[in-house]
Amino acid sequence: MTARPNASGGDLKHSALERELSGWMTQAQQGDGEAYRALLEKLSQLARRYVRHALGRRRGLDEGDCEDVVQEILLAVHGKRHTHDPRRFFLPWFYAVARYKVIDEIRRLSSARQAVSYTEELEIAGRPEDIGARMDVQRLLRGLPHKQRKILRLVKLAGLSVEETSGRTGYSQADVRVSVHRALKALRKRMELAGDEDR
């Protein structure tokens, strides 16, 4: 039985998937690693399907970027798993988290498009030689989500280790690693875009 984001309480009550995930989540909240692994593996499948539908098909996001959003969702589940009340249904909680991250990605995409059109405006204004100079570190960093910017500053500019950054920011070490990876990837992409426009 496939549970959908808008499935009603009645549907969920009889859903084997809901019971299974809810059980794993309760065990994971108590620190059971194996239940947590099973939960995350199943959630990655559900998240992938949801993201492909919401961002891949509808917004034309490529497979790699969809997978990044899936990872963001898993990190969010990890960071906010204490907010799930075991007496309530699990799937509405999970899809609300997934939806939040998908909306975040849509916002990021639209702001990235705005950044591209900003450089286009500069080009039209006849100052293409300024574009490279303007794409300095600070401006590049400003285009990143707050969390990635903060973590990248600490790891790459302040030279802190992953452990130190995790301790200082409160994000898990896995989250710090993924955020650095994601931030560098986003910066590379933005620089390539800027480079293409320079040519």
Partner: peptide, 21 residues
């Protein structure tokens, strides 16, 4: 980082969590 590797690292961080008040 691949999703499987991420899951592996998150599982390593599995600890009991304190529920919301």
């Amino acid at each position: 980082m691949k999703t499987d590797e991420l899951i592996q690292s998150l599982v390593l961080e599995a600890r009991p969590v304190r529920p919301l008040a």
